[in-house]
Deep mutational scan, measured.
Amino acid sequence: IINNLKLIREKKKISQSELAALLEVSRQTINGIEKNKYNPSLQLALKIAYYLNTPLEDIFQW
């Protein structure tokens, strides 16, 4: 999986903590996703895309 979450999140000036709060997950979860240590569920990936107002395929590429 190619993961552009960190790049997109930083472009939008959103911290890991802010995104985690919006998604109701821990900051460690966001960190793990960004470091490719954790693959989000489809539901979480869709929520990330929604809150970042970015197409899912721009954030994650399988």
Rank of each mutant, 00 (worst) to 15 (best):
6 K>E: 08
33 I>R: 01
27 R>T: 15
60 F>I: 03
37 K>V: 13
21 A>H: 11
50 Y>R: 08
49 A>D: 00
57 E>T: 11
47 K>A: 10
8 I>D: 00
58 D>H: 10
37 K>N: 11
39 N>W: 15
18 E>P: 04
8 I>V: 12
47 K>G: 06
16 Q>I: 13
41 S>I: 05
5 L>I: 07
4 N>D: 04
18 E>H: 12
36 N>K: 12
58 D>W: 09
1 I>C: 15
46 L>S: 07
20 A>T: 02
56 L>Q: 02
57 E>V: 08
46 L>P: 00
13 K>V: 06
43 Q>L: 14
57 E>D: 12
49 A>I: 02
48 I>H: 00
32 G>W: 14
23 L>M: 07
58 D>M: 10
10 E>W: 06
50 Y>H: 12
47 K>C: 08
53 N>E: 14
1 I>W: 15
59 I>Y: 02
38 Y>H: 11
1 I>V: 11
60 F>Y: 04
27 R>D: 10
62 W>L: 13
20 A>W: 03
31 N>V: 14
12 K>N: 11
34 E>D: 02
51 Y>K: 06
7 L>K: 14
34 E>F: 03
6 K>H: 07
14 I>G: 01
46 L>Q: 12
46 L>I: 12
27 R>S: 12
12 K>H: 07
13 K>S: 10
11 K>N: 11
37 K>Q: 14
29 T>C: 15
13 K>M: 14
53 N>D: 14
31 N>H: 13
33 I>Y: 06
16 Q>K: 07
59 I>C: 02
50 Y>I: 07
28 Q>Y: 10
52 L>M: 07
4 N>Y: 08
53 N>H: 09
5 L>E: 01
13 K>G: 15
41 S>M: 04
5 L>F: 02
61 Q>S: 13
37 K>A: 10
18 E>N: 09
52 L>S: 02
62 W>K: 06
30 I>Q: 01
46 L>C: 14
14 I>S: 03
33 I>M: 06
46 L>H: 08
20 A>P: 00
53 N>K: 10
10 E>Q: 10
25 V>M: 05
54 T>N: 03
32 G>S: 14
50 Y>M: 11
45 A>K: 11
47 K>D: 05
28 Q>F: 09
32 G>P: 01
37 K>R: 13
49 A>P: 00
13 K>I: 05
61 Q>V: 09
20 A>R: 02
24 E>N: 15
26 S>W: 04
23 L>N: 02
38 Y>C: 13
34 E>A: 04
18 E>F: 08
10 E>Y: 05
20 A>N: 01
49 A>K: 02
38 Y>T: 10
47 K>H: 05
31 N>Y: 10
5 L>V: 08
29 T>S: 08
31 N>T: 08
51 Y>T: 10
24 E>F: 11
24 E>A: 13
5 L>N: 01
17 S>Q: 12
5 L>P: 01
13 K>R: 13
5 L>R: 01
44 L>E: 04
